[in-house]
């Protein structure tokens, strides 16, 4: 299970990184989202992978899963959602303001160069 989990996390992170380095805003946003998924999976696994483990201490139970990474991952997911929503809106705003979805649009700067 560890090998599968690690492969999936690594693949997600690699795809996210590739997309985040693209030149248009939409792939960048999708890439950052994939990256945050990969990070969430990674964070989830930091307590060790256990199946059928109890998260809360109870009498007569000896097999436990680490509850803290679950709490951390929940926080990270919520924050990640907010950031994704924000960056989607921002990408649309960039598109509207510049008339192009290039991350590095140089057209806006040209008139300024001539003036100075």
């Amino acid at each position: 299970m560890e090998a599968l989990y690690a492969t999936v996390t690594g693949f997600l992170a690699a795809s996210g990184l590739y997309l985040a380095l693209r030149g248009r805003t939409f792939p960048v946003v999708v890439g950052l989202t994939l990256l945050s998924y990969a990070v969430n999976l990674f964070l989830f696994s930091t307590g060790g992978l256990t199946t059928n483990g109890a998260a809360v201490i109870r009498e007569g139970v000896t097999h436990y899963a680490d509850p803290l990474p679950q709490a951390l991952v929940l926080t990270a997911i919520v924050i990640g959602f907010a950031m994704t929503a924000f960056s989607v809106i921002l990408a649309m705003r960039v598109r509207g303001d510049q008339g192009s979805d290039q991350v590095n649009d140089q057209r806006g700067e040209e008139p300024k160069e001539e003036k100075s």
Binding site: A20, L32, M83, S87, L90, A91, V94
Partner: peptide, 12 residues
């Protein structure tokens, strides 16, 4: 907005 997008993407 453009400087903002760079800033946001980098910080994410």
């Amino acid at each position: 907005t453009q400087a903002g997008f760079h800033y946001v993407a980098l910080n994410l």
